[in-house]
Every structure is written in C-alpha cells, then in structure tokens.
Design a binder for these strands. Sequence first.
DNA 1: CGAAATATTGAGCCTTATCAATTTAAGTGG
DNA 2: CCACTTAAATTGATAAGGCTCAATATTTCG
Lengths: 228, 228
Amino acid sequence: MLVANSVQWEKSIQVKHSPGGPPAMEALMTLRRCRRSEAIYSREDPVDYWYRVAWGMARKSTLLSDGHRRLVDFLLPGNYFGISAAGRRRNFDVEAVIEGTTVACFPRRRLEALADSDPEVGRFIRQVTFEALQRLQARILILGRTTAPEKVRAFLVEMGQRSREGGRGAVVLPMSRYDIADYLALSVETVSRALTRLKVRSAIVVADKHHLTIAGDALEEAADPGME
Amino acid sequence: MLVANSVQWEKSIQVKHSPGGPPAMEALMTLRRCRRSEAIYSREDPVDYWYRVAWGMARKSTLLSDGHRRLVDFLLPGNYFGISAAGRRRNFDVEAVIEGTTVACFPRRRLEALADSDPEVGRFIRQVTFEALQRLQARILILGRTTAPEKVRAFLVEMGQRSREGGRGAVVLPMSRYDIADYLALSVETVSRALTRLKVRSAIVVADKHHLTIAGDALEEAADPGME
DNA sequence: CGAAATATTGAGCCTTATCAATTTAAGTGG
DNA sequence: CCACTTAAATTGATAAGGCTCAATATTTCG
C-alpha cells in the first residue's frame, strides 16, 4: 500500500531548479526519508541543519495564537529551507506532505565554515536564499488577491510553474484541500467551491483530486512578478 | 515646509538592527537622498545596486494585472533591499515614503566580488538576507489573518516592533492609509473603519493620524513567529 | 487661497466563514 | 482481501464581514 502510494507520485514530483550545490557542499549531505506527515523539524528546535528537498513535498507551517494553522510555504524538490542563522530556534514546523519525501540535510556549522573558505559555496548559498525570497514575495502577491477563485487560480498557476513537467498547464496537487486552505487563508469549503467553479467555467480540467490541467487562457492571466 | 516636514519625522524613524555592515563594505557605499514618492528603483531596471535604508521609509510595490497596487514590504532604517542576483531585472518598484528618505547604495558587482574575497562580508550578506526572509514570513502570517481589525492590529504590532523607540506600544505610521490598505490587501475604507473600531474599543490610543499607541493587552495577543 | 489628495463615515450588495449534512476516499485490523 | 473506522472532499443554508459606490471632512501642496 505504502509502496503503491509512493508510485502514484513517482513521476509527478520533479526537480526544476538547483538540483544540487557545489561538490564540496554535497559532500556534507546526508539523506533522510520521511513518512507522511513526519516532522522534519519543529518549533523550538535548534538550527543545526539546513535542508533541501530531494524528492516529494514538504510544508512549512505554524500554529497561530487563535488556533488556526497557517502554511507559510510548500517545498518542492530542489527548494532549500530552514536556512537561517544560528543562536535562535525554529519558529516553524516543517513536515513531509507525502510518504517517502526525502530531504538532503546539511550540517549548518560545517556548511557555514565551508562558505567562508570556498567562495563558490558562499555564492551558492546566497543564490539559494534569493530564490527563497522570490518564492515568498510571489506568495504575498497571491495572498493579496481579493476573491477566492482568483487566489485559487493564482495558486494553481504557481504550483504549475514551480514543478513544470507533464507539459503546459499540468498541475499536481499532492497536498490536501486543508493544506491549500491554510496556505491561501481560506476555509476548506471555499477552496472546494472555488475549484468546482473553475471547473464549471472550464478554466481547469480535473483529472482526479490531485491532478488537473489549467486552460490556456486562464494560465495567461496571472503573470505577476516574483523577484526583488 | 519641506524642512518642517522632515523635522516632523526626525526622531520618529530610528534604526533598530544592522546599522551598518563591515567597514570594507561600507567603503563602497554612496548615499542618496530622495523626495517624497521618488523612485529608488523601478520595474525592468537592471540589478546594479543593492540598498539599505539609512533614514526614512520606503515601500516595495508592484502593479497587479488587475490594476491593483500591492505593497510587498515597508522598508525601515537598517533594512536591506533589492538584494538579488544579476542577469535578471527588477520586478518591483521601490519608492520613498517620506521626504528626505536616504538610502545607502552598494554597487552590486563590487560588493559580490568583495563577498567572494572577504568571508566577513559574505557572512554579513547572508545574515541580511535571512532577516529579509524573516520579515516576509512574518508578513505572510499577518496577511493570513482573517478579520480586518485583526490584520490591522497585527500590522500595528509589527510596525511597533520593527521601529521600536519611543517606548512600549508607540507606533509611528508615516505612510498613508492607502499604503496600509495595499499592504494588507484591504480597501482604504476598511482600514479606516478598523482603526476607529480599535480606538473605540480602547485597543489603541490615537495621538494624531500618524502617531498612536497600542494598549498593553492588545499588544500581547499577537506574538506570532517570524523566523525560519 | 484654491485644488487635489487623504481620511472618515454611511448604505447596499456580494462574498466568504460558519454550521450542518452527505459522499467519497483512505487507512486499519481482522 | 474485505469490512470497518476515520479522514477528506463536496454541497447546502445562513449570517457576518468587507467591498463598492457615494458623500463629507480634513490635509496638503502649489
């Protein structure tokens, strides 16, 4: 069952950018395979490692004071995360979204030392952090959308762009509707309704719950920035 | 008049973090003074400089495809911005919010070269980028709030924390209500109403349009994370 | 001093959150 | 492998909250 579950996503979740860093950096890496919903790091943990998603998908979240969960980011293969300074502790939780999600772990102290001595590594870390910044800025624009269907459509376009494979407009959504709702700051019901509305309007074609295609014109509309 | 205008803010906008980088880096810096609403950089500009606010306040924004302006960030003294890789072009506009806003400009190529040769500079740049990441993540949590008064309150707390001076709970808002609205993805009217509601409930004390104080208990409530 | 922003307040409509019920899918243990 | 239990997804009805349009202060700036 678990195997079949993994197979379901095998070809769906692909690397887009930064498949790996400089060799000297990759030498520090260890791989870790995670169960579904397993924590990769938790709030209050010390910052001992920096990470990169090798396969699968992860979600960065936090529990707000009002009890609501808020998803800050979805992490796809090639995305680095948890890259922050020492001394402090984590303020977010990161969990695997799908069974078998694998992360590359880099010991922070050693990697920082390496960045000091090897300019190529230093440059690479900066580059990776810039990419994270872009992701978050793009995300803010999505959250800034006013109507729910707009938010959902922008979200689908974002996910399509971030894991571009399977051709134009194809989108894979391994996460639950609850995850999407917490990501877009909407209720699950509204997300569900927005999806059916988009389907009815033929803005999307739904293969199954986790696979859909965005129609060409709906795809064009949301071409908004993501960089500094 | 312009002078008087500057004086109005003189003691209000203070540095909190990272007053300056390593000396070798500061040697590259040139200062630039801006008029109110003057562009610091614009969309499509090449990435030739990295910046730090020295005095005043700036706003990073973009025009969405639907014609709405979206503010991605407010930039306070000590905040670095525009730090992204070469090759591409800017996707956002950055403008001075108040008359006399002064920015420190660092030529990107020379600074990157310096980061390669001087580990201290490299480390500093990483640190600064981490701070920008934290800011954006905190911002996402604010945007994720559901009700308008909650968003506004969280915004006030954020601004208070970011330019902590003038004592506990004091907040200075040099920007217009329109800026706040575009920052929180609300309409101006809703922002205005939310503020009056907070005032009526005694959650805030309004000195004048640009100066207010957050009541102690309202301040406690919103202690949500901001870091990786 | 006059013109143009900027702020605030009101009324009505529209959208979304909430509560509730049903259907579908997924995970568990025999 | 199937029945069972639990989680996930969808759909409906209702009420609250925010956006829009509109009017009126209040400031700011030329």
